[in-house]
Structure formats: structure tokens, C-alpha cells
Design a protein around this nucleic acid. Structure first.
Length: 223
DNA sequence: ACCCAGGTGGCCC
DNA sequence: GGGCCACATGGG
């Protein structure tokens, strides 16, 4: 099977098996950004708790976070771990938002894509995955988000070899039509699938794309 | 008592 | 530029 067909069939089968995921689980674009900054190496459950704490304290707002003491922010987001870096990143990002666009996200995103992405990558704690997550789910840019799960699954289904993140991203973007809803859904489905079966010790008999995988066979290359 | 989580930044070579 | 490593909480 050609790789383009495989990429599309896997999407269809994941969608059929898991159903629409309705990602990103946040109420506003700003919440998406806060969640993305709190996410690294942390379970979504704890990120949700941290966001709920900020909301309850009336701090879930660019201006409020930009001026709140880091110690105060830390008190609320400690549950998300890495508390010596994440609160500072959160505040710094919000200060940047206020300084560059008065906290108006629509204005922030209203620039050429390359400029926005480069600006995101300059912010503390924002790497390629966080930047693309923000663009895809907080803005409306059809860019393919590649996280550790995506790399692992892409290798399992034979879409790529032992290539790096950049190659995985360009591969998906070449084979999957550049459609916002599709990119959002595909990434959400890959995470759902990873959490369900495609962990380092997968249950092959439960995998909905098992005949496209090499679970338990030598062709599998991954962490 | 381990190991892991939807990465990132700072090292070192 | 690639290959390590610390980071910190909460859950399996």
C-alpha cells in the first residue's frame, strides 16, 4: 500500500474506532495556550486541575497572569509539576501577549504564519510541539502536531523509518489534505490511540489498525 | 519502589 | 547538530 493511502486509511480507521475526539479540551483559545504551556511531561488530569485552580482564583486571563506574582501563580499550578519553570513561563508569555497585542489573541495571530510561529518559538517553554499545538487549536492554522506518540505510531504503521520529528511532520502534511478539522482530529486520534494501546508494551490484539502495524514483529522500531 | 506523562532547555562532544 | 540529562507532581 502506498504511504499516502496508509496515512489516510489509518485516519479513517482510528476515527471509526474511537469516534470524534472534540479536541482541544478547553473553553477558549487562551485556555488552550495555558494548557499547552503546562502540558510538558505532565498528565492532562493535572493540567486540568491547574487550569481549574487558576480559573477559580480569577487568574485565567492574560492581563491577570501578566501582573500576578510568580509565587501566586505557582501556588495554583504546582499540581502540574515542574513548578520552578512553568509559572515563570506562564507569566512571561502573558506579559508578551499584553506587550505585543494588549492580550488580544486574535490580533496576536493576525500576522503571517511564519512570523507567528517564529514568535511563539522565541517564548520560554515553547518548542515545536507547543507552538504547533497553539497554532492548530488556539488559532486556526492547519499545521500537523507531532509529539512522541505521533513519532512512535508513525514508525509502527510504517509511515516513516527511524527519522526525526521534522520528517514525520512533513510526511503527514504531504499525505493528509491540509484541512483544519482533519488535522485537529488526526492528532487527537493519535493520542487517543496511543493511550489506548500503542504504549511501549502494546496489546496487539486490541489494536484497531493491527494489520497496518508491526506490533511484536521485528519491523517495529521505537522507544 | 519503581516507571511514566501529549517537551523543553541546557549541557557536552 | 545529535545525544544525554534535569525538571516535579500525581497516578499506575
Amino acid at each position: 500500500m502506498r504511504r499516502v493511502d496508509r496515512a489516510l486509511e489509518v485516519f479513517e480507521r482510528l476515527l471509526a474506532h474511537y469516534g470524534p475526539q472534540r479536541w482541544w479540551p478547553a473553553e477558549t483559545p487562551f485556555e488552550v495556550i495555558v494548557g499547552a504551556l503546562l502540558m510538558p511531561q505532565t498528565s492532562w488530569r493535572n493540567v486540568e486541575r491547574a487550569i481549574a485552580n487558576l480559573k477559580a482564583a480569577g487568574l485565567l486571563d492574560p492581563h491577570r497572569l501578566a501582573t500576578a506574582p510568580v509565587a501566586t501563580i505557582r501556588k495554583h499550578v504546582r499540581v502540574a509539576g515542574l513548578y520552578r519553570v512553568k509559572p515563570a513561563r506562564l507569566k512571561a508569555f502573558c506579559r508578551h501577549l499584553v506587550a505585543s497585542c494588549h492580550g488580544d489573541l486574535a490580533a496576536y495571530f493576525d500576522r503571517p504564519l511564519d512570523a507567528v510561529r517564529a514568535d511563539l518559538l522565541r517564548q520560554q517553554g515553547v518548542g515545536p510541539e507547543t507552538a504547533d499545538s497553539i497554532l492548530l487549536y488556539a488559532s486556526e492554522v492547519a499545521t500537523f502536531v507531532v509529539d512522541a506518540y505521533t513519532v512512535r505510531i508513525a514508525r509502527r504503521i510504517g509511515l516513516v523509518g527511524s527519522d526525526g520529528v521534522d520528517h514525520v511532520k512533513t510526511t503527514f502534511e504531504r499525505y493528509v489534505p491540509r484541512d483544519l478539522a482533519t488535522y485537529r482530529e488526526y492528532h487527537a486520534l493519535l493520542v487517543a490511540h496511543a493511550k489506548a494501546t500503542c504504549r511501549p508494551s502494546p496489546r496487539c490484539d486490541e489494536c484497531p489498525v493491527v494489520d497496518l502495524c508491526d506490533h511484536g514483529r521485528k519491523a517495529y522500531v521505537g522507544p
